[in-house]
Design a protein around this nucleic acid. Sequence first.
DNA 1: ATGAAGATGAAT
DNA 2: TTCATCTTCATC
Length: 195
Amino acid sequence: MTDLAALVAGNVLDAAPALVGWTLLADGVGGPIVEVEAYREDDPASHSFGGRRGRNALMFGPPGLAYVYRSYGIHWCLNVVCEAEGRGAAVLVRALEPAQGLEVMRARRGRAGARDDRLLCSGPGRLTQALGVTNAHHGLPLDRSPLQLIPPERRYDVVADTRIGITKAVGQPWRFLAADSPYVSRPVTTARRRP
DNA sequence: ATGAAGATGAAT
DNA sequence: TTCATCTTCATC
């Protein structure tokens, strides 16, 4: 699927893996998405859980907009709002492969980012810092300046895994990664060794 | 009004 | 493992 509007209008569990490989740019800085997570209304871990109120109202709005929130008082995190208006679903963009605007990213990411390109965008907070995404982008469409989502140029093999940092709803394999990408925030969970 | 928790990241 | 730091939501 190369039509963004149709993609984000669909079921978030389909949209999330399909977004892997799309290039995300903010003012021309970014690269292909390699890791996302899906969140939906019936999911205790989702900001939209329990209905539309306050800031999360954007998750219930029209698909294709950016839902940005503050994490741990420090980081910004970027989501792509999905599904029809009235449904509170979104895809958290967790990591991308740094491809365009490398020097800008390194400057924004400071010490850690300067020494290893894998530390530029591997994590939702790192990614927004590298791309300069903040509260100012909350509610902006992802298909118009300063934000862009460009269809993949090649095929990506996508792997499903459990989400990260979730305490309220465990087990759902709603984290989607580009297989073998060195730019994901964390490798796929390996089977737990027996005691 | 006030407080605790949280879809994180960096340093120790 | 600790801690930075702030919005949202629950409770008083």
